[in-house]
Design a protein around this nucleic acid. Structure first.
Lengths: 343, 343
DNA sequence: TTGAAAGCGCTAACAA
DNA sequence: TTGTTAGCGCTTTCAA
């Protein structure tokens, strides 16, 4: 059943190409990495030799000799969360056609695991690093600070970023959703949230402050769980909310799947949305606007965060120090749809 | 604004550790890779030296000397499709805690791009490869056949797999959904599908054959698009279907998001589901069973495919030829819920 | 169980 | 513009 014979694959090397082309090894190397500094004739000979031999460079040898790889590390807290799949897409689109490739590390919302991954990634001498939080452990942060490659922190804006950052004001975003609910005339707003990582905690705190200052805070109307977010969890939290505070008239959801779940639960109970229950979602993945009724949501620039982060990183790798705007605030947008009733 | 000084980081090497521990370099190497063949005393000295110096191995040097890396390549046709995010999760869970890490390549449903990625990945001497299709170009297939690492093809079962495979019978799966619609008493079933890759094509062909043999095939009730699948696309295709064949009484959807869209469109038009319209979904991501009404679906073992594929691969890497069951059929399951009416 | 010697395939640094 | 030389940090091979 064994198929492979660990083929001591006599794969051609730089030296083979050099011999074939009648030049030196370094000329071949240069032809590949910076063709513009090689003479027309040499280049042509080398290119022919390469295609004749079917040569492909060995990235390991290159990494060893040059002390740097073409790997870009991307640390995310979750692979399941739709939020990050959009970021991911932006990042992948940005590296397409370059010599770089992405290596994803999933730290599962654990700062300790994140620290381990940072250490691990850094030991591979990556060309750059994208990390999805500002909440590193002190050791993790120290590692990032002393990294010998550019680092982009994404998702939030924060004055304390290590090197570069791309994000938006998450707290202003959640506030705009809450404000919209009040503007619509809802007076007993609730809040549901799953997976209470530091960022979710901060958004909850902001919701509490905002509603408190508006005189409509009631802790019975706030339900959270450390478990992962899902549509089913949205239904469950909505159920809890309705039994603990039956007079609730609106709900701010900390994630899209929770909002979809909340809508489904309302439908099951024949609670009319938006008339007796306003629903505001957060992030605004595609599905949200296709619901019936379409969900109002705070739209976050997930894809653009990925795209801009990788663009910054590539620019900084190509030319260290060349990126002027090292901290980008991409903003957010309140998408008013059918699940909240305008005044 | 520049922060880094390309730190000629005097990072400790194997030789430094050897000197510190009073042994030779190769003993340090062995202590790390196969501690069981090193004496207790030597091992202890080395371990102490490693932690004292904060040594981490350089993967590039290791790869160059040993002709193999700890990278496992994973080729997927899409980063957006929920199907693959479940597979991904299974794979990532499987490498956690091992020395391996995953590198994802997205070939965007293009066999040509896939071929390029195979070439690219293979030139990095990966420890193993997971590919998500059986539809390689001839050159792509040849590359896989001559790869010097184990290869797992996932998603489908097929006698023509290159090395190992993990999947299920996609055609039997779609047939079971179609059969269920007929069993329920629906007589004018339609089919909607987006992103017509070869696999989607085969499923459509199977639907046609099956309905033809049951005498209920009508091509007006089949609508497809090459564009990506989404909830919005599901609504759109449902709309088309209803205008082209208003007498339709059920729809088989080739993907979960299409089914959710179809349900929403039915709701918008006040078409009662399941009484006047049966809906059957394909894949069964979490959201599907949380809809109101909950959607009937053919559940596919996406997470398990990822988990089993990586397990096979790791076993084969550890001990070439050790995997006996080289082709796994994981099956599928029809989940009957509220969107189809039982007889 | 341990070690010495010889590379792996490339690039940095310098020289021509 | 091109070449020479000397490694990069590890593992392989062979020997003790």
């Amino acid at each position: 059943m064994v198929r492979k014979t660990k083929g001591r694959s006599k794969r051609p090397t730089l030296v083979d190409v050099a011999r074939e082309a009648g030049v030196s090894a370094i000329t071949v190397s240069r032809t590949i990495r910076s063709p513009e500094i090689v003479s027309e004739t040499a280049r042509r000979k080398v290119e022919e030799a390469i295609s004749r031999l079917g040569y492909t460079p060995d990235p390991a040898a290159s990494a060893l000799a040059s002390h740097s790889t073409s790997t870009i590390g991307l640390l995310v807290p979750s692979l399941t969360n739709n939020v990050f799949s959009d970021v991911l897409r932006g990042v992948y689109e940005g590296v397409e056609g370059t010599r770089f490739f992405i290596q994803i590390g999933n730290y599962r919302y654990s700062a300790l695991e994140e620290e381990g991954l940072i250490r691990n990634f850094l030991s591979q001498r990556p060309a750059g690093l994208i990390v999805s939080s500002m909440d590193q452990t002190p050791a993790g942060r120290a590692l990032l600070e002393s990294a010998s490659c550019p680092v982009v922190q994404i998702m939030e804006i924060s004055p304390g970023a290590v090197d570069m950052s791309v994000g938006f004001d998450q707290l202003a975003a959640v506030r705009s959703g809450a404000r919209h609910l009040l503007d619509c005339g809802y007076r007993r707003p609730g809040f549901i949230s799953a997976r209470m990582d530091p960022r979710a905690q901060r958004r909850l705190a902001t919701f509490r402050e905002f509603t408190a200052s508006a005189g409509v805070l009631d802790d019975r109307r706030i339900i959270t769980t450390p478990q992962p977010s899902s549509v089913g969890m949205g239904r469950y939290l909505m159920e809890q909310l309705l039994s603990r505070a039956p007079d609730i008239d609106a709900v701010m959801c900390n994630n899209d799947d929770l909002a979809v779940g909340a809508l489904m639960e309302a439908k099951r109970r024949n609670i009319p949305v938006p008339d007796q229950m306003g629903i505001c979602s957060y992030n605004d993945i595609e599905m949200v606007r296709q619901m019936v009724p379409a969900l109002t949501a705070v739209a976050t620039p997930r894809h653009e965060i990925g795209a801009r982060a990788i663009a910054m990183l590539l620019a900084e790798i190509a030319q260290p120090g060349s990126v002027d705007q090292r901290h980008l605030d991409l903003g957010y947008e309140l998408m008013i749809r059918e699940s909240t009733r305008p005044v």
